[in-house]
Structure formats: structure tokens, C-alpha cells
Simulated scan of single mutants.
Amino acid sequence: MAFSLDESVMGLAFPKEERAALVAGDPRKFQMPSASELRFNWVHADLASLEPTEARELVVDAWRMVVPHTPFRGSGPLSDSASRAFQRAGLGPCFRKETGIGPEASSGGSTV
């Protein structure tokens, strides 16, 4: 995952085979990546257009696409930019505990 400098757009893992249909279904929310990124499993999402539940599902699905099949502990905390973007999208500590992302995950939360 990545965030634009102004934290308005989130880039995330998404299957290339399904990307065009996602963008065509709601071009206000989703955009194709730049030409140089088309070879990757990647899509852009406008954070202001996403409902918190939808953002959560996208993030968890993206995480599952790229996380190693064997879970690991000790991944570092989220960057300040990512933490702010998650908070604006309504994805607080509960999200991090459920997914194993961030500092709250190490205090009894499950890992992916």
C-alpha cells in the first residue's frame, strides 16, 4: 500500500485481471495506476469516496495478496502518514488488531 503525498489517494494491491472492471464500475472511487505501474497488481482508490467498511475490505484483501503465507510477528508500526490516512478512513486500532498491522497488534491482537 502507498498513499499520495496529500493522503487523498491510496494505492493498493489488486488483481490485474479484475482491475479494469473495478475501475469501470466506479471511476470516481477507483483509477488505473500510471502506465509504468500497469504490469503490477495495483490500483488507486480515492479515500474520500470510500466508505470505512469498503476501505477496510480493500486493505485487508490487499494485505492478504502480499503477506507471506506464514504469518510473522514484529512488523513495525505504521508510518505517521499511513496512520493518519487510516484514521480518516475510520480504520482505527480495531482494524490493526484484526489484521496484525501496527503497534496494537502486538498487545494481544491476531496476526494475518
Rank of each mutant, 00 (worst) to 15 (best):
A2Y: 07
A2L: 10
F3H: 06
F3T: 04
S4N: 07
M10H: 04
A13D: 06
F14H: 07
P15H: 01
K16M: 09
K16Q: 10
E18Q: 15
E18P: 01
A20C: 00
A20T: 06
A21E: 15
V23M: 04
D26E: 14
P27H: 04
R28A: 13
R28K: 13
Q31N: 07
M32E: 15
M32P: 02
P33G: 05
S34W: 11
S36F: 05
L38S: 09
L38F: 01
L38W: 02
R39W: 04
R39F: 05
N41G: 01
N41I: 00
W42R: 15
W42M: 12
H44Y: 15
H44L: 13
L50N: 06
P52A: 09
P52K: 08
E57W: 05
V60K: 08
V60C: 01
R64Q: 14
P68W: 03
H69G: 09
F72Q: 12
R73V: 11
R73D: 08
S75R: 14
P77R: 14
P77M: 06
P77T: 14
S79L: 12
A82Q: 12
F86Y: 14
Q87E: 15
Q87I: 10
A89K: 07
G90E: 06
L91G: 05
L91M: 07
C94H: 10
C94M: 08
K97E: 11
T99M: 10
G100A: 03
G100Y: 05
G100F: 04
I101H: 00
G102P: 06
G102S: 08
G102M: 07
P103M: 09
E104C: 02
S107F: 14
S107E: 14
S107Q: 12
G108V: 09
S110G: 12
V112N: 10
